[in-house]
Design a protein around this nucleic acid. Structure first.
Lengths: 154, 154
DNA sequence: CTGAGTGCAAAAGATTTGCAGGCAC
DNA sequence: GTGCCTGCAAATCTTTTGCACTCAG
């Protein structure tokens, strides 16, 4: 049962799947639709709950398996929290492909930032060690300076 | 059974424990001795093995419980790898208290770096969002540019 | 049709917790 | 002596895996 009006992003996703020799199954496209439809940063559990809310049934195992492929090919971005937990967000072209995160530990809100100087410094450090950066984690946790942070703790 | 010649760092550790209302038990001091005796970056499992080699018996549970306290008080530094795993290293005054890591994914070697400009940029970013940085993760994974990296993969 | 993909449940790995006995103070 | 601490094992939590059934190509 194919979608009658396929999401235009499916073309890109199908290309990625094909490049891995994987089939474009309903579950894989459903997962992409869910993740690409929101700019939220979500963990596996939340994504599963959100899918279930929409009556889209995808098993936990399939979600893990699929997300790995999407992350590998840059369709999704995997965020490593300093707690060791992971969050995922889509990596559409409209968003800076390289950006870091600052998490407010009072309200849980996640802000994104990007600074070119940091990249330059990182590159120089790696060069000095004769290394080439392949992956990077740069994340700050912060607390609010004032009462503007009115969200609930999470 | 107290150590006859207590490690001079025990004074500091005992102060930390006292500040938390915790007792200076043999296990807690043993854990500190083991971690402070080496500049290695180790995970829980490796620390346990290293303790066992020295015939020092500390249970896994006690190690987890104790390490958390030491990290909280800055005696140890917890490193979050982008795989979500953790490594620990001691945080003696002779080492820059704030430093980041670059891991060679070919040989597993961990290099440390510190750049003041990055701190400044981070502070500015947080300031602009009216936040105050409380924790930070900044870690690079890299591969070797040449054959100098001769260690075994891990 | 047919092998790749899925869902389920079991397994695996990491960390936390409850509890009975032991030891620091 | 007393109650905090430890070790053990069970419990939790997250992620991976084996397998029979299903479906995309």
């Amino acid at each position: 049962m194919q979608n009658l009006i396929p999401c235009r992003f499916h073309v890109e996703v199908e290309a990625v799947l094909k490049s891995e020799g994987l089939r474009a199954t309903k579950q894989r496209l459903d997962i992409w639709d869910e993740l690409s439809s929101s700019d939220k940063h979500r963990d596996i559990e939340t994504i599963l709950v959100d899918l279930k809310k929409k009556k889209i049934n995808v098993s936990r195992a399939t979600l893990y398996r699929t997300i790995d492929v999407f992350v590998k090919h840059g369709l999704l971005k995997k965020i490593t929290l300093d707690s060791g937990k992971f969050l995922y967000e889509h990596n559409k072209k409209t968003i800076s492909p390289k950006h870091d995160h600052i998490v407010c530990e009072d309200c849980g809100e996640i802000f994104e930032f990007y600074d070119n100087n940091i990249s330059s410094i990182e590159k120089k450090i790696a060069d000095d060690l004769n290394l080439r950066v392949t992956k990077r984690v740069h994340q700050l946790s912060a607390s609010c300076n004032n009462d503007q942070c009115s969200h609930a703790k999470n």
